[in-house]
Design a protein around this nucleic acid. Structure first.
Lengths: 347, 347
DNA sequence: CTGTTAGCGCTTTCAG
DNA sequence: CTGAAAGCGCTAACAG
């Protein structure tokens, strides 16, 4: 009924219009609309008048006006290197869920690892008035860029990548420890014969994995077996690195670890090109678990990051800052443990 | 230098403040800031004064005020069933890129296939004042929900799922034709022994695939070999469907097609449980290509949707409506062809 | 060429 | 319990 009526009548209106139509003041209307009727003891009669009118015509608040007045948008920005990347996509999905729970909306943006683009994106989001930013940065973020209108810094949390100077609250996976465990396990299973194919070794998350890898090798007295590409984290890189490795070894390695899914894809291509498929006895090690890895008949050791743990921690931290009546939030590092899986089982 | 100065001075200011400080009017300031100095022939002197001031102190526009006045947010909302799903994540990534190119920002939201949530999300985004909505809906979208303030309908394009009544401009993949080609190819390679495991057969995209599958089977005079689950598109479903199939056949099928990556994952699990891996001679057919499928030693026939083509078409259509000085945009259907791949080669 | 002014819709004192 | 009025920052007439 009401639904029907709403379609005929002029659509949702402003508070002011509702006030005019119902013959009360905007304050009164606003009070009942915002559910504060009780608190201000609006008379039941006027209250019902208003509620009836709204039920009939509908009303949706205009956030633009609200934002302008409140200097608050109830929006948070999330900046990641690549929205299509499975890891970041999951992160975004979790964060959007959290946002929804608190009536916030999520602005998603990508940088493609370009620092300049990242800076512009940050400024852009701040100009949009976001109340908070969650960022997986491609460079050490500069706090002075996270301020608006001389106000204090916009709530910010860095996720996934811990740059040396932790100037912001930061939430990351336990890359170093995971890498160490993964490497140890692989060495145990492969007899110590393991290589690490990686791109962008300067990225803090990758650097941590390299450290973990090196520690495990060092503890076992094995020399470093690292193949690196400074920049391009692409399948093409993975292909090239694996190609190099095959050329060097003259045959397939017993096992290898790839620093990202893209590198793994490339490595698979190189192996397929050479052997018509991935030799079944190669042990695969990876940090970005994907269910399709089960397609391989190979032994797969993978670290599954606790994506939802990361998102939860990051969001909680963000909200603390946003609600923050407290002055400063500590710019600490929060590490979320991942889990090592062998094929489909956690070990 | 300027950078340095900017850090000492009070941060970015309002147009009004800049006007006061530089001793000119807000109009003048606005004109030069918006790059319309030429057009209104602002004198070089005042112009330089302003530019110098801005260069020194910086200025970022406040979108809240702008939105309120212009009734336009330069934001578009994108609503998909699941942001973590590879297909939608790619779509989101492409769309964000497009948005960026036009100075728009992207609000991302998910529905998890819940109609009620979808409706709320639409209303929410409209209340936020988005200028456009791109939606992969889980139900026939109701145009009356896409209006704001009695104004005409917010620019909207439906993507990925063509419901029977095409009330909005709609951009989808060529699911039916792709499915037919895929099925024909698989039958040619497997001797006609092919099954289709699918979830949510009522979804228009899935329904189209089922039609294509049935057509190919019909043309070859083979009976329907469809295993369906009405709702849950999950790995658990895929596992169950494959389990049922194995029980029925008493052994692995020669080939099967899965309606989604999740179904494929589940099917793989069921096969692994039963045979300790995916029997190598099974031919895999799928609609959501993923590079990791190369891990399989199996023959893989997959339809790769032209994600960026979909995104381009959808965005173009959206922009037409947003800029639309023309009255109505035709609510037509735009079909984007996918490509059939055998292993890594298009065929 | 430049300045003044009136709102956009909302919230928030401050008065009744 | 309810109303009036100011103002958030921006833009777009309209005057000079």
């Amino acid at each position: 009924m009401d639904e029907e009526a709403a379609q005929d009548q002029p659509q949702p209106r402003t508070i002011e219009e509702i006030a005019a139509e119902t013959g009360v003041s905007v304050t009164t209307v606003r009070l009942v609309i915002n559910g504060q009727a009780e608190r201000y003891r609006i008379s039941a009669r006027t209250r019902q008048t208003i509620e009836a009118y709204v039920a009939k015509h509908g009303y949706v608040i205009d956030h633009a006006g609200r934002s302008l007045k409140l200097r608050r948008s109830d929006a948070v920005g999330c900046i990641v290197p690549d929205l299509a990347n499975a890891h970041f996509a999951r992160l975004i999905a979790e964060l959007e869920e959290q946002c929804r729970g608190r009536g916030l909306v999520l602005l998603a943006a990508s940088t493609h690892e370009k620092p300049e683009r990242e800076r512009q994106t940050v400024s852009g989001l701040i100009a949009r008035g976001v109340d908070g930013i969650i960022i997986a940065p491609c460079e050490q973020p500069d706090p002075s860029r996270f301020v608006r209108r001389g106000q204090r810094r916009v709530a910010t949390v860095v996720i996934d990548r811990a740059f040396p100077k932790t100037l912001f609250p930061t939430v990351v996976g336990d890359n170093e420890a995971s890498a160490r465990r993964l490497t140890e396990q692989i060495m145990a299973e492969s007899g110590g014969d393991v290589f690490f194919l990686c791109a962008r070794p300067k990225m803090p998350s990758i650097a941590a994995r390299i450290r973990g890898f090196a520690e495990a090798l060092g503890a076992a007295g094995v020399e470093a077996r690292l193949l690196c590409e400074p920049e391009e984290d692409t399948a093409a890189t993975g292909r090239r690195l694996m190609g190099d490795l095959l050329a060097t070894l003259g045959g397939p390695p017993r096992s290898f670890i790839s620093s990202s899914l893209l590198i793994l894809e490339g490595a698979i291509q190189a192996l397929s090109d050479r052997f018509g498929g991935v030799p079944r006895d190669i042990i695969l090690g990876t940090f970005d678990h994907h269910p399709l890895m089960e397609l391989a008949s190979n032994r797969v050791l993978s670290v599954r990051q606790d994506t939802s743990g990361l998102a939860d921690a990051a969001f909680t931290c963000l909200v603390e800052q946003m609600d923050g009546h407290s002055e400063e939030v500590a710019a600490g590092l929060r590490v979320i443990a991942g889990t090592l899986y062998a094929d489909r089982q956690p070990i």
